[in-house]
Computed example of a mutant assay.
Amino acid sequence: MLIAANHVLDFNGVADAFGHISIRNPNNNATFFLSKNQAPALVSAAVDIIEYHVANGSSLDPNAAAGYAERFIHSETLKRFPDVNCVIHAHSQALVPYSLVHNVDLEPAYAVAGFLGETVPNFDIEKYYNNSHPHDMLVNNNFLGAALASYFTTPATNNTKSTSPDHTFVLMRGHGFTTLDVDIETAIYRAVYAQSNANVQSQAIALTQSGGIFHGGVKYLSSRERVDSGTFNQASAGKPWPYWVKQTEANPLYKNELGSPV
């Protein structure tokens, strides 16, 4: 299933050559699986998958292939939230602008993105560098991974080290985003439709600035609509999964030696 998930993220334009998705080991919640350091579209076999310790992001196999430098996004998020099983990090160009502009927030613009909730936190890594860190925007150690993971909770619950996330989605300034959930299908739903929502929101903002037919700004989902649409999103998140998998299986770019997950 993890192989297919990599393909779906690539097919939908969410993950480029550098995006990645992890899944907690269903037989051992202290480890997780993540592909080796290669483009998601090219993940094709069991040998492309590495098992890591949740506790520190180290590989169980000392001879494993080179892994992603940002695997600590996954290890620290899975460590912080024991009910979370899947983490996605990618660099969607539709979403990155919303991490850069201080007076324009990413908002749920239509029903499939109610899961974004009332606010979308924006992680600014510059606040967390120390003198020994290269300022390369990468979450490439446990400290930075833990800092990012903390953005999935509100300040109130952050003080109590809540073990459940308050937010489903975090932007990363000048970098991309991270999202999470209990399973692959729901996490991918969020990644795909957050990107789609960003495109819709950007188009709506452009209309308000065009001097054309729509004046007075963009009307986003109300607070109640965000809650109720988010509930619907959660319940229906598995619906697109088999459709997306079949799309990738029909494309010769994507190979899966383990067979179809649907």
Score class of each variant (00 low, 15 high):
residue 160 T to F: 15
residue 114 G to P: 07
residue 256 N to Y: 07
residue 93 Q to P: 06
residue 88 I to H: 04
residue 132 S to T: 12
residue 157 T to M: 10
residue 4 A to C: 11
residue 46 A to S: 12
residue 74 H to D: 14
residue 190 R to T: 00
residue 176 G to V: 03
residue 90 A to V: 02
residue 45 A to C: 08
residue 69 A to T: 15
residue 261 P to I: 14
residue 81 F to D: 12
residue 167 H to S: 07
residue 127 K to W: 11
residue 172 M to D: 07
residue 14 V to W: 00
residue 72 F to R: 01
residue 126 E to Q: 08
residue 219 K to Y: 04
residue 230 G to K: 03
residue 143 F to H: 06
residue 131 N to M: 13
residue 24 R to A: 08
residue 30 A to P: 02
residue 190 R to I: 00
residue 100 L to E: 09
residue 96 V to G: 09
residue 146 A to C: 10
residue 200 V to C: 00
residue 212 G to V: 04
residue 109 A to M: 05
residue 127 K to A: 15
residue 189 Y to A: 00
residue 77 T to R: 09
residue 259 G to S: 06
residue 41 A to G: 03
residue 68 Y to D: 15
residue 50 I to Q: 02
residue 219 K to E: 08
residue 218 V to F: 00
residue 6 N to W: 05
residue 49 I to T: 04
residue 250 A to S: 10
residue 24 R to H: 11
residue 85 N to S: 10
residue 40 P to W: 05
residue 51 E to C: 00
residue 85 N to M: 07
residue 191 A to F: 00
residue 36 K to N: 12
residue 66 A to N: 14
residue 22 S to Q: 10
residue 211 G to L: 09
residue 53 H to Q: 09
residue 208 T to C: 01
residue 86 C to W: 06
residue 12 N to K: 03
residue 156 A to C: 13
residue 140 N to M: 06
residue 251 N to P: 06
residue 230 G to S: 04
residue 165 P to A: 13
residue 15 A to C: 04
residue 99 S to E: 09
residue 220 Y to E: 03
residue 56 N to D: 15
residue 107 E to C: 04
residue 156 A to T: 13
residue 94 A to R: 02
residue 244 W to F: 12
residue 135 H to M: 13
residue 118 E to I: 05
residue 40 P to D: 06
residue 236 S to E: 13
residue 240 P to R: 14
residue 248 T to R: 10
residue 94 A to Q: 03
residue 214 F to H: 05
residue 167 H to C: 08
residue 127 K to R: 12
residue 154 T to N: 15
residue 87 V to H: 11
residue 40 P to S: 06
residue 70 E to R: 07
residue 231 T to D: 12
residue 37 N to L: 11
residue 216 G to K: 01
residue 250 A to P: 04
residue 82 P to M: 07
residue 231 T to K: 12
residue 147 A to P: 14
residue 83 D to L: 13
residue 68 Y to Q: 15
residue 79 K to V: 13
residue 79 K to W: 09
residue 115 F to N: 02
residue 257 E to Y: 07
residue 114 G to V: 08
residue 57 G to R: 03
residue 131 N to Q: 13
residue 102 H to Y: 04
residue 209 Q to S: 14
residue 30 A to L: 10
residue 114 G to Q: 05
residue 52 Y to M: 05
residue 245 V to T: 12
residue 101 V to E: 03
residue 95 L to K: 00
residue 58 S to K: 11
residue 18 F to I: 09
residue 72 F to T: 01
residue 257 E to S: 10
residue 198 A to G: 01
residue 244 W to L: 12
residue 261 P to K: 11
residue 119 T to C: 01
residue 99 S to V: 08
residue 190 R to P: 00
residue 251 N to Y: 06
residue 19 G to C: 10
residue 1 M to Y: 14
residue 206 A to T: 09
residue 6 N to T: 08
residue 21 I to V: 09
residue 166 D to R: 02
residue 13 G to L: 02
residue 57 G to H: 06
residue 213 I to W: 09
residue 235 A to Q: 10
residue 73 I to R: 11
residue 165 P to S: 10
residue 38 Q to Y: 10
residue 124 D to P: 01
residue 128 Y to E: 04
residue 76 E to H: 02
residue 43 V to H: 05
residue 108 P to L: 08
residue 36 K to V: 13
residue 27 N to I: 11
residue 244 W to G: 07
residue 221 L to F: 04
